[in-house]
Nucleic acid binder design. Structure first.
Length: 112
DNA sequence: CTGTTGACCAAGG
DNA sequence: ACCTTGGCCAACA
């Protein structure tokens, strides 16, 4: 991977405010890599847990916890951390994109 | 070198 | 609300 892209993505993730979430696609755009949502997931997968990146604030479109398909246990951790920050969930285990702290309307999840 | 595989996504059915 | 399709493209077999 191009290290500059990696750092751009990690920077975008670090910019997500506490108590809010963003999506892979949105992080990709914020990192100047529109349409490359998959790359965000790949980078987060390779990112060491020691790195100071709030990976738990990144969810899939619609508030789904995409990490569940990759590491079911991680999804539990993600939900715990988000709830501790005040993020609300729906019955189906999705993040409430409309009422999360600081969430803004439809697609604008965190202000750039 | 080609083929498949994804922490994805938007649109259409 | 779920499923399929086509787009995406780096890593991996």
């Amino acid at each position: 991977m191009d290290p500059s892209r990696v750092s751009a993505i990690l920077r975008a993730v670090r910019a997500i405010p506490r108590g809010t979430v963003s999506t892979y696609g949105e992080v990709a755009r914020a990192a100047g890599l529109p349409g490359r949502a998959r790359l965000v997931g790949r980078v987060l997968r390779e990112a060491p847990g020691s790195a100071a990146v709030p990976w738990h604030r990144v969810v899939a479109a619609g508030g789904r916890l995409a990490v569940a398909a990759y590491a079911p246990h991680a999804a539990v951790t993600q939900r715990m951390r988000l709830e501790r920050e005040g993020v609300r969930f729906t019955r189906g285990g999705r993040v409430r994109l409309d009422t999360s702290v600081g969430a803004g309307r439809k697609s604008r999840i965190f202000p750039g």
